[in-house]
Design a binder for these strands. Structure first.
Lengths: 177, 177
DNA sequence: AACTTTTGTTTTATTAATAAAACATTGAAT
DNA sequence: ATTCAATGTTTTATTAATAAAACAAAAGTT
């Protein structure tokens, strides 16, 4: 594929837009409605910015505006929100429960990448977590072994994981820190 | 933490800038030098854009420009490149070897998120992959079990993984597709 | 009814990343 | 030395996301 690196910016809708939609979702859940001012406060940006962004999102059919200027997600908008939130949730659990990252790091990293991951990746990760969190004996043994495992990346030559110039080489890497 | 969602845009340096630095790295490796035109061709953008971006990166001490307009990564720039490439590499391996995603999806998703993941996350993932790829018996059993595992997200109520409105609920999710 | 506050919209401006085109420099070929 | 091609820089313009401020409308208070 040509210019893979450019795909980063071609995400449609953008990170910002998805967070506008998620704001509508959360405000509905919490208050039963979502107006421009509520979204602005929730996202901590100005009313003007929200007005501009929501107009675009309305034109793209991610939400509707009723007579009272209340916003409602369309089916399409709701799906986007569900997909982003589901990915965030499962990624966060993977980060904190499998990788044992601190909650804040797990939360932050998950939020940053949620909308960039394909749905396919989200699905596979759910499948993996379903297995990892099961009480199957082979899983319990695996988790036990991991708790005691330390990975020491001795040198680039010996490391089975990295390419040359590995940023992490030479560092002691353990599950707990 | 306030405004976690805004951290996405506050990544310093940006996705684009990191790819400029990676271009310098790859071109040096391949040709022994990196000029503006080479970077422009490599990234498939104009010379003018490269000139502007590289001037900024030079001012921020990520690279230097010699008398012949050849660019060289500084220690700081090289570290950024190493950290991004290492994370991309290990994420890609996790996606394809653990989650069993097709190579193209693994590559694309890894490229999108590489620079957004914290170094801490990169480290932990390397540790996990070191364990997962080891030949320890408990790992082999785990992998065997996973190969046969199917996760069926029956309903939101029963699902141990999701929150309400899970995007993936009701779908049959298996390791192979 | 007049005033004030709240909310929404529009306009002007900024920043980053880009393109495109004009401009500048350099170096090689004739 | 003149010309031409390659390369680098600057300028102008665009797009997305924002702020800030001006403006508009609606809604509540007195």
């Amino acid at each position: 594929m040509k210019d893979i690196w450019k795909k980063f910016d071609e995400t449609e809708p953008s990170h910002s837009s998805i967070h506008h939609l998620m704001a509508v979702y959360h405000l509905h859940k919490k208050n039963g409605y979502a107006r421009g001012i509520d979204i602005a406060n929730y996202l901590n940006i100005t009313r003007g910015s929200v007005s501009i962004t929501l107009t675009k999102l309305r034109d793209k059919n991610y939400l509707t505006e009723d007579e009272n200027k209340f916003y409602h997600l369309t089916e399409q908008g709701q799906q986007l929100v569900n997909s982003a939130l589901s990915k965030r949730h499962i990624v966060k659990r993977f980060f904190s429960e499998v990788l044992q990252l601190p909650a804040e790091v797990a939360e932050l990293d998950a939020c940053k990448i949620e909308h960039l991951l394909s749905n396919e990746t989200g699905e596979k990760l759910i499948c993996f977590m379903g297995y990892y969190l099961s009480e199957k004996p082979e899983v319990l043994n695996f988790r036990l072994g991991f708790r005691q495992f330390k990975y020491q990346c001795q040198s680039v030559a010996e490391c089975r994981l990295c390419e040359s110039d590995c940023f992490f080489s030479g560092k002691e890497i353990s599950k707990t820190g």
